[in-house]
């Protein structure tokens, strides 16, 4: 299992710039926002957490369609299925590797983009904390979509359509908690804990479902 984690990380960082592409996409989304709404720093500071969350959400969807597809195309998936490891654990490890390679760099890059958005240090810290807790949930739900669309040559778009409505709760509580940290009457702890609960819930539901789908997906 550790071998699988190491292999997936290696592949993620070697092929196509891996983590860097996600961060660049993140940068691109954050950069176009001021062009859309004007360079009003106060407004940007106000909507900053939301923009960062939406950008991170879109960036995490990027490349999710390749989570199992590459392994399927070169025959690796067949062999992985045959091994005496539970598919749930295998999918969990693959999600973990994907998140480490594409989610974590985004979170580490958040402070820089937070400054672009004229956000206060506390707000930036809150966004980082919520992203750290929330983005794994996106990967775990995404794994189900990736497993279902694994045999489709252009599954990426379909994956996004299938997954976006399901990750709305993650977005809602992530952004709410981020705002809760800076705006006084709004709560932080409650939405943050719900966000943790969502991630834990999907870390179980996602791998079990995706593993089952993959085991039955061979043809």
């Amino acid at each position: 299992m550790i071998a699988l984690l190491k292999r997936d990380l290696k592949l993620a960082f070697r092929v196509g710039g891996g983590a860097l592409t996600g961060v660049l996409f993140f940068l691109a989304v954050v950069t176009i926002v001021p062009f859309g709404i004007g360079p009003d720093l106060n407004l940007l500071a106000k909507i900053g957490p939301a923009i960062l969350w939406i950008a991170a959400l879109l960036a995490s969807l990027l490349g999710l369609d390749r989570l199992f597809q590459q392994d399927r195309e070169d025959g690796t998936l067949d062999l992985i299925i045959m091994q005496p490891h539970s598919m749930t654990a295998t999918v969990f490890i693959k999600c973990l590797a994907h998140w480490l390679a594409s989610g974590l760099p985004l979170i580490l890059a958040t402070p820089i983009f937070g400054l672009f958005m004229n956000m206060e240090p506390l707000a930036i810290a809150a966004v980082m904390a919520t992203l750290l807790v929330g983005t794994p949930a996106i990967t775990f739900i995404g794994a189900v979509g990736a497993a279902v669309t694994v045999s489709l040559p252009r599954g990426g778009l379909l994956l996004a359509v299938l997954i976006l409505p399901l990750v709305i709760p993650v977005l809602i509580f992530g952004v709410t908690a981020a705002y809760g940290a800076v705006e006084d009457p709004a709560p932080f702890t409650a939405p943050f804990l719900i966000l943790c609960a969502l991630t834990l819930f999907f870390s179980v539901l996602g791998p079990i479902t995706a593993g089952w789908v993959l085991r039955n997906s061979t043809d």
Partner: peptide
């Protein structure tokens, strides 16, 4: 050992 080699070209 199927038709596909299950090798990763990047490794």
């Amino acid at each position: 050992l199927g038709h596909l080699n299950a090798l990763k070209p990047a490794m």
